[in-house]
Nucleic acid binder design. Structure first.
Lengths: 198, 198, 198, 198
DNA sequence: CATGAATGAGTATTCATTCAT
DNA sequence: TATGAATGAATACTCATTCAT
């Protein structure tokens, strides 16, 4: 009804950039702790040390903020997984499986916020789909590097499973040695039998 | 609607049971569709044909209602999984793996509500923990039936993985033939190498 | 996004009717005093003795409430003016002019709220247009009764002027004898020269 | 408003004047378009090309700005009406009536902003009263020129009516030939019977 | 002086829960 | 006992105003 003059603009000064980063971090933490709906914009503002008005200068709605959190997560994990996919070529299968598990465990804390937001029905499906597509793409790359002769539709199906395995491993973060050993074995089993020797 | 048949208690009690069941079912459906926070007590009442006041007679708070939904889910899947665990003794490993996958896929719709509620941080951790414990217990039984010589702590670790595999499979519901084949292979792989031959 | 169950429903009990009437009256007064935007739903609730939630049971938005105020005004003044238009037949021209002025002066306080709301850009044009059309219709009836031979397009143009004269007179409420005499003369002048002898 | 007008002040002062004029014009337009409350200081700044901070240098509050808009309108229409009042002496009654209607129609767009602000209860009654007094004064002058023998209190009452007639005519801007003819007749009727031959 | 980022009180609206009928 | 009208605390979002740069 009225032009949203600068709303949602990129911050122009360093202080703005720092503030945006702080807000995103805080928001991610809170979303992970309490879920999308339970988190109030006021609480995000308070915990990130910003005024409520400042929050809205950078993110015009709560959903836009959640979108941004998700996007930032997508960018960061996208890069990480690209590097991981690279490893699929150099590393022996066993070592790659271990690297895969290590990555998943390391990312577990950050995943929490992303999971909450992906599950939340409020978040624009666009951002969600983009993230999903990115992850699946990375998984497909890894699989193709391990076994380049696989048919495309098989790659797709296996990429989905591998992606779920990433989630599965992350869900075990902080469970102790025995659990990690089981996970390593499971991933190796999958990579050996369903990818390498498919 | 009917007031005093013969002596009151019995028919009333039955009516009450039916009403409670209807409410639980409706609530579960709505939670699955829209998430815990998005569902209003009013909408649950309306869709289940109860008055809002009646809702509060049976469940003193929204969280209590969610707890009850979760508990009912736990009871039902607990029984199902007990039966599944039984099969572990009679069936050859491959067939058990298939049965496991079939069960997980069949339960997928009902899982939706449970997942939403487990994720929701409002739900009393008690109910959540009880559900988790039940499921893990059933998984442990199945594993022990496949390989009774496993050490208890190993059984526990593997039960957790198996439980996550149940979730992983359920997450693939409606994904098509190729996906299901991958899942069957994955579960077989796990059962053969990490349970039977551990 | 979710069914608005009973929201905005007609009240079913007497208490509800009284409450609705009180709210409409209060809202009209406040709108007249302070203008649409300056009035808060909270202040309407407080002054009418209702809880804010009760306000929203009957009127789902602030605009809906304003619409209702406008509609009630339209209904009441519509009836009044219909009676006035009747008089155009029985009364001599001079007396009708006086009656016209008297009516306008009597309605002045109620007009304030209506004017504010008609001016407010938020109010649904539908309600506004309906009110305008009603008033113009009554004016046209009066004019036709005074001079039935007038061509339709002339009637329309003169009805608009007469309607504005109604407003003009109302704007003079509380101005004293001299002013009223001037107004009576003006209206007579208009009716005699531009309606009766046109 | 002027601080120390010795050196360097001139070009700055001129720039300031231009800027102030631009702001007043923009503010007037926006108030007319959207109403007092709906217009934001930010939007006025943006549309007038000024920084929000500059806006507040010239006008300490939103109401002060509205006051200034109203004052400027008063000054301009005051001059116009003074010229119109002059005509009352030279022109025959009929021609003066036509000039009156023409002026009112020509001023209609500018009136919009003034009307909005006069209606808005935020505006200091002082400015409002001053404007009203100016207009009534001009109308009284015109009336006295037409009929110098009228008693002062009659002049006052008739001036009020004439002022309302100005508003009434302005409200008909853009209504077509037939309407304008009616208005001319109405004004002539008033001037002839209630002023010239009173 | 000019700028526009930051502030936070204030607003419409929702919904879990209570309680009079 | 059943009902659903009433309650009001809580929440997302806006915008006049200030002040550090």
């Amino acid at each position: 009804m009225q032009q949203k003059l600068v709303e949602g603009a990129e911050p122009k000064r360093r202080r703005g950039h720092l503030r945006v980063a702080a807000i995103l971090q805080t928001a991610g933490d809170l979303f992970a702790e309490q879920g999308f709906d339970a988190v109030t914009m006021t609480s995000i503002a308070a915990r990130s040390g910003a005024a409520i008005g400042s929050l809205y200068r950078f993110f015009p709605t709560k959903e836009a903020l959640a979108d941004a959190v998700l996007r930032r997560f997508g960018e960061r994990i996208g890069e990480e997984l690209a590097a991981l996919a690279q490893d699929a070529e150099h590393l022996p299968l066993e070592n790659f499986a271990d690297a895969f598990v290590d990555h998943a465990l390391a990312w577990a804390p950050d995943r929490a916020a992303a999971l909450v937001l992906i599950e939340a029905r409020h978040i624009g499906g666009a951002e969600r789909e983009r993230l999903r597509a990115t992850l699946r793409q990375r998984m497909a790359e890894a699989i193709l590097r391990i076994n380049p002769r696989l048919a495309p539709e098989l790659v797709a199906a296996k990429a989905r499973v591998l992606q779920q395995l990433f989630k599965l491993v992350a869900a075990h973060a902080g469970e102790g040695e025995a659990a990690v050993r089981e996970l390593r074995a499971l991933v190796r089993c999958f990579l050996r039998e369903q990818v390498a020797n498919a």
